[in-house]
């Protein structure tokens, strides 16, 4: 009796899973396979895709612009993840140890709630070399105008800073939630032993936060690799490809030059890179799971 009932459950479960599975197959599985197929074809959207073997991949390997894009992306990820995580950690600790105001927490989330395109346009105007408020301020302080988006050395740090501004609040909130899980008595006993705030942060908060920190890093790293909208709004990959990140490269190949096959090959490469990075990070995440148990 009992066994048949269990089997019935399983069959019912498949029925309930079906919509999701179909959705996944139609919206993820099928496009992924099509993408894989296009990556070995010559396809301009207006012709029939013709099989070219590994040509797209060998061409990619020799394409300086592709490697440059990857390099620029890594530069962005380092700048963005570095600044964002450090800032978020600081903000979260302040929220954790200093104030627990809900208003403040809500305010921190505000930049994250603004659509990326709006964020990009907002900062483009603020930072404009000739008409921007920030440069006006800098000039009146005697520092002189800075070409935030137009100077090849400044463009990427600027884009990274904008996204850091937009995402720090959200990351801080995640870290803050992680900090709330750390038992209060640890801080109390440390305080009795005469530890100062900095020491408590280093010896208690940071080690016990590691699993949450790892999770936040995984999520934001993948997101960071996919930087596109801020660049598409502000720099268009310029000046002279200083901000032509890999997503923008793929976008240009696909929708400006209509090299669909070539773009698909680049996208597959990016997916592989992200897959490897995620696998490494997942391992790190699992390793640090047992800290608070």
């Amino acid at each position: 009796m009992k066994t048949t009932k269990r089997r019935d459950d399983r069959r019912a479960a498949w029925w309930f899973l079906l919509p999701v599975l179909v959705g996944f197959a139609v919206f993820y599985g099928y496009p992924a396979i099509r993408g894989l197929w296009y990556s070995v074809t010559d396809y301009t959207m207006l012709n029939q895709p013709s099989f070219v073997g590994a040509d797209n991949y060998t061409e990619l390997a020799q394409d300086g612009q592709f490697w440059h894009s990857l390099l620029v992306t890594v530069w962005y990820v380092v700048l963005n993840i570095g600044s964002q995580t450090l800032l978020a950690l600081g903000v979260a600790s302040l929220m954790h140890r200093l104030t627990r105001s809900t208003v403040l927490r809500a305010a921190l989330l505000l930049p994250w709630l603004v659509p990326n395109v709006t964020v990009g346009l907002l900062w483009m105007w603020l930072l404009d070399t000739n008409l921007g408020f920030v440069n006006n301020l800098l000039t009146s302080l005697g520092v002189g105008p800075v070409g935030f988006f137009t100077d090849a050395a400044w463009a990427m740090p600027t884009v990274a800073a904008i996204n850091t501004w937009a995402y720090t609040g959200y990351t801080a909130l995640l870290l803050y939630a992680g900090m709330l899980q750390i038992p209060q008595y640890l801080y109390e006993s440390a305080a009795i032993d005469g530890a100062n705030e900095w020491r408590m942060f280093r010896r208690i908060t940071l080690p016990l936060l590691r699993p949450v920190l790892a999770l936040v890093l995984v999520v934001s790293l993948i997101g960071s690799f996919q930087i596109f909208d801020t660049i598409a709004v502000t720099t268009f990959g310029g000046p002279v490809s200083a901000t032509r990140v890999i997503y923008y490269f793929i976008y240009e190949q696909a929708f400006r030059y209509f090299h669909m096959g070539y773009a698909a090959a680049a996208a597959i490469c990016l997916a592989l890179i992200l897959g490897v990075l995620t696998a490494i990070q997942m391992r790190l995440l699992r390793a640090s799971r047992s800290d608070l148990a």
Partner: peptide
């Protein structure tokens, strides 16, 4: 003329209208 690395991201007609 403005240097390219210190140029505006805005269009020239916006700059003309701003008297720049």
């Amino acid at each position: 003329s403005p240097a390219l690395d210190k140029a505006s991201t805005l269009t020239n007609d916006a700059l003309m209208n701003a008297g720049k």
